[in-house]
Amino acid sequence: MTASRMVLRSALCWLGLSPLLLLVIFPFAVMISTALKPIDEVLAWPPRWLPDHIAWHNFADMWLAADFGSALLNSLGISILATLLAIAIAVPAAYAMARLELPAKDLYRQFLLVTQMLSPVLLVLGLFRMAASVPLGDGTLVDTRFGVILIYGAFNIAFAVWMLASYFATIPRDLEEAAWLDGCTRTGAVLRIFLPLAVPAISVTAIVTFVAAWNEFTVALTLLRDPSKLTVTLRVVNLVAGRYSVQWNQVMLATLLATLPVAVMFATLQRYLVRGLTLGAVK
């Protein structure tokens, strides 16, 4: 293709995307603009994009008000562990779906689909009662990060199994079968041949699970009590909900910072994300 055609095509593509991109970028522009303003400018009339003074202290104020550091650690810990849990449980199940003769496979698949249909908002009361009835240490699952991890893990299993199973089905069997001939046990073949091939799909599933856990609100709100255990999403919403006065600059800054890790992850991994979801979506 000639360079000039490439220029033309690129221009057309960007032009075509521009209305959507405008809408995508708009809220981020709002966040950045508001996050940098001191409160009197936030509420000034008429509103303007650029602050007169950049209020760097918003950062420190917000960090303190939302206890952002510990919230960040909680969110990271909970999201990573929930992801590991979901993956650890979904990989064997997906392998069974893709490779083994599973009785009532369709029933199992439908069951998974049904679990996707229940939003936590519907189940909050029941979830809480369940958590309160499971003893753990001195108390129950209530107000434990472990309880939240367990629930996030469970809610993401369906998607994970579903995606992994379709991907696993595309990995050629011959490689494993060749390994059996070489005297490898079935388990050995899975560990040495199959799993390494499945790494891309597993990472994509992990990202999707991680993002879901990172962004979840309802379950965390219901289960967590102790301020030292709250997640980032919870903290940010708490800065707004039911307050007598809202510091919008802090809220926007907190949202921006909470979004950053996930955005960076998307930027680095978008290539795999597209590929992975494709394969997952085939079935």
Binding site: R9, S10, C13, V24, I25, W214, F217, V262, Q270
Partner: peptide, 27 residues
């Protein structure tokens, strides 16, 4: 399509996914 800056465009389109729904609604 194959065009200049495609991975940037893909990342940008993906961005709204990075904000939790509650926060997006607040913004």
């Amino acid at each position: 399509q194959n065009f200049w800056g495609r991975s940037l465009a893909r990342t940008l389109v993906m961005l709204p996914w990075a904000i939790s729904l509650s926060m997006a609604a607040i913004v």
